Amino acid sequence: MLRLLALVLLLANAGYFAWTHGLLADYGYAPAAQAEPQRLAQQIRPEAMQLLTAADARQLENAPAPTAAAQPAPECLQAGLFTPEQSTALRTGLESTLPIGSWTLESGVEPGRWIVYMGKYTSEDALAKKRAELRGLGVSFEALVNPALGPGLSLGHYSSQAEAERELAKAATRGVRTAKVVQERPEARGQMLKLPAADAATKAKLEALKLQLAGKPLQSCNS
């Protein structure tokens, strides 16, 4: 009886050894495979892995957390003046592009502009000769804003006729004899666009309104 029991145990051990070592796999008897080679294919840049020392780990723990890039602060911008027709088109575009309350269209006035004027000259050669003469006198000059006054020169622009007259008298003391005061631009009234707090997102949306802005540049409200 003991011999039979020992023989059974021996056969059982032999069978277990053969099963665990895959010797019975051809007959459909084998333990479940523990290897998972598909996980190797899922690794992302395993060569970039690094083993850190205790000092490296402490340094990483104490390092400050990365912060988002600072965004420019919103600023007040304005553009204008716009005629009634331009204002209507601009309002329509603004209402469909920017949030309500982020912009306003307000009545505005652009004051008249007076200049100390020299011209009109009969040719570009005559204009060039006058420029050279003014340089010789040490008198500065600037281009004209109103093309209807060209070819000619401005010796300075002013917000009132009285101020321009005073500057004309000063120019005469320096040898300027043929200048006069004229109104280069009359007073204008219209609508002024104002954006009290234009951030980067608002400025990006305004790119879609170039046509409605009619070439009027956006400027700082403090300019």
Rank of each mutant, 00 (worst) to 15 (best):
L4M: 11
L5A: 14
A6F: 13
A6G: 04
L9Q: 07
L10F: 10
L10S: 14
L11M: 14
L11P: 04
L11S: 14
A12S: 06
A14F: 11
G15M: 07
Y16S: 13
Y16W: 15
F17E: 10
W19K: 11
W19M: 13
H21A: 06
G22E: 01
L23P: 03
L23D: 08
A25R: 15
A25G: 13
D26N: 10
Y27D: 02
Y29W: 15
A30K: 08
P31Y: 14
P31M: 15
A32S: 10
A33T: 11
Q34I: 13
E36C: 09
E36K: 14
P37H: 02
Q38A: 15
Q38V: 14
Q42G: 15
E47Q: 10
A48F: 02
A48V: 05
A48C: 08
A48R: 13
M49C: 11
Q50D: 04
L51N: 09
L52E: 10
T53I: 08
A55L: 10
D56L: 10
A57S: 07
Q59V: 02
P64A: 10
P66C: 02
P66Y: 07
P66Q: 04
A69Q: 05
A70L: 12
A70N: 09
A70D: 13
Q71L: 11
P74G: 04
P74M: 07
E75Q: 14
C76R: 06
L77K: 01
A79T: 12
G80P: 04
L81H: 04
F82G: 12
F82K: 11
T83A: 05
T83K: 04
P84M: 00
Q86Y: 03
T88F: 04
A89P: 03
L90C: 00
R91W: 11
T92N: 08
T92E: 11
G93W: 05
G93M: 14
G93P: 13
G93N: 03
L94P: 01
E95V: 09
S96V: 08
P99Y: 09
S102T: 12
S102A: 13
S102C: 07
S102E: 13
S102G: 06
W103G: 01
T104M: 09
E106S: 14
S107N: 15
S107M: 10
S107C: 05
S107E: 14
G108I: 00
V109P: 00
E110I: 06
P111S: 15
V116T: 07
Y117I: 01
M118S: 03
M118I: 05
